[in-house]
Amino acid sequence: MKHFLKKIFIYGFLVFVAINLIAWLSLSSLQNSSFYKPSYLKYEIKEENFDYIVIGSSVGLTGLDTKLIDSIQKTKGINLSMDGTFLNSNHLMLQHFFALNKKTNYCILAVNPNDIVNSKPKLNLNDYRFLPFINEDYVFEYYNKMENDNFKILSNSKYFPFLGVSLYNSELFYPSLLVAIHPKTHNRFDDNGNYAYVGNTVLEDKKTKKIIINWNNPYVEKIKNLCLKNKTKLIIYLAPKYKTEVENQNKKYEIINFTSEIVDSKMFYDSIHINESGRRQVSEKIAKTLIMK
């Protein structure tokens, strides 16, 4: 029995070391690559000062073209939005940006009205993309706060990296193999951090709905405070939504309300995302109305 337990302990320890080593190499490989936005910002973006940055979810990623805005305004901007994220992840991205000693004059927070209403933010679909930076306090604290399970897998990845890497193996382990060979590969975004949806789905022609939203999400205020602390001006950009008009009654924040800016269904990829044509129109208008230089 003792001999068996000793053997199990030795083999178990070897397995434990091996999987942790593989996971650690995997996270290191990702950190030294441009595959996901948090790593891209550290590895590829050498500039430290920006005129503006765009943070947000897929509506920011696919709805604003920083390259086009820069070409019109002669500014330097970058799109740090990530699909599958909400305001809490956007706050984390902003923390990450400032932690890398980068500065910006403006921060455009691109949001979907539904996200502002959400009073109980939780861990988002693509938050694992920050896992290569788990040793940073702000990332660890974020996971620790957002994970509600008894066993906090992402938080504990700080000590046992195999936990997070095996849970998200198709999202972390395999890309890490790819970027070990091609570190500058991007996961669905261009050199400026933008991505466009091409084509459109058939949307039902209906009457425009006017809605009033409650600003319940605590992360709007947190993002504003973080901006204030870093002498950055926050602009909240309410992205176009098909046949929806948000009545803006909030005077606390500077808001660009484009919810009803696009009416042509051909400029929508789906009901909450504009396509390439819609993005061009919106970006041109932003560049003309919001002077960030």
């Binding site: 091996a18 999987i19 593989i22 095996s166 382990f173």
Partner: peptide, 8 residues
Amino acid sequence: IIIIFFMG
């Protein structure tokens, strides 16, 4: 075991 962790 390694395969389980990284392919499971």
